[in-house]
């Protein structure tokens, strides 16, 4: 797992540093899921570093976001734009809004160094909108680092089990 291909600056040594333990990581992922379920997207955005990447590949085992399309691939500027759009009263693809419910589990630390760690987790996500419900599931990877206010996400990758299926629009972030 090498992502992003060009390491963001935030992955360089970071003063707060230090080891993460699995329970702390799991608590963080649960907190992140809660912000998304409650539609607190600004707070969710604030979890990310200033040079973060957010990635939902379109293919299983996709190697790169640069030479292959992605369901979502945002740098900080695009992620800010995506989150700002979610707050727009004219985002018709969220009228009515989705309601979501996420479960996080099987959390493991895959790699760790002095600056942070890569956390792997399984998730299931129910999305209800306009009298129908869809279910997503898969594996997420977070690169977590220590930031000013605590743990921050340097990058996040979400591998959906059905990433290459025909899908209706994906608007709420995973």
């Amino acid at each position: 797992m090498t992502f992003p291909q060009r390491a963001p600056a935030a992955m360089q040594p970071n003063a707060a540093g230090g080891a993460f333990d699995a329970a702390e990581c799991e608590q963080f992922l649960v907190h992140e899921a809660r912000l998304l379920d409650e539609g607190r997207f600004d707070e969710w955005l604030s979890l990310f570093t200033a040079d973060c990447r957010y990635w939902v590949p379109s293919e299983p085992n996709q190697a790169s976001p640069r030479d292959t399309i992605s369901l979502m691939y945002d740098d900080r500027r695009l992620l800010e734009t995506r989150v700002r759009r979610l707050a727009s009263p004219r985002i018709y693809s969220q009228e009515p809004p989705s309601r979501t419910s996420r479960m996080i589990g099987n959390v493991t630390i895959e790699a760790a160094d002095a600056d942070g760690c890569t956390v792997r987790a399984k998730f299931q996500l129910l999305e209800y909108r306009r009298e129908s419900q869809r279910i997503f599931g898969g594996t997420s990877f977070h690169r977590l680092v220590r930031g000013g206010d605590g743990i921050q996400i340097a990058w996040k990758r979400v591998d959906l089990v059905n990433c290459d299926a025909p899908l209706e629009g994906l608007v709420v972030p995973f």
Partner: peptide, 24 residues
């Protein structure tokens, strides 16, 4: 309208790897 507004209000000063340039 939602993406027009969001893109117009977006600062170009924040970190970018250049991948959103043309889309914005």
């Amino acid at each position: 309208q939602s993406s027009i507004d969001a893109a117009r209000q977006q600062s170009d000063e924040v970190n970018s790897d250049g991948s959103g340039e043309i889309a914005i």
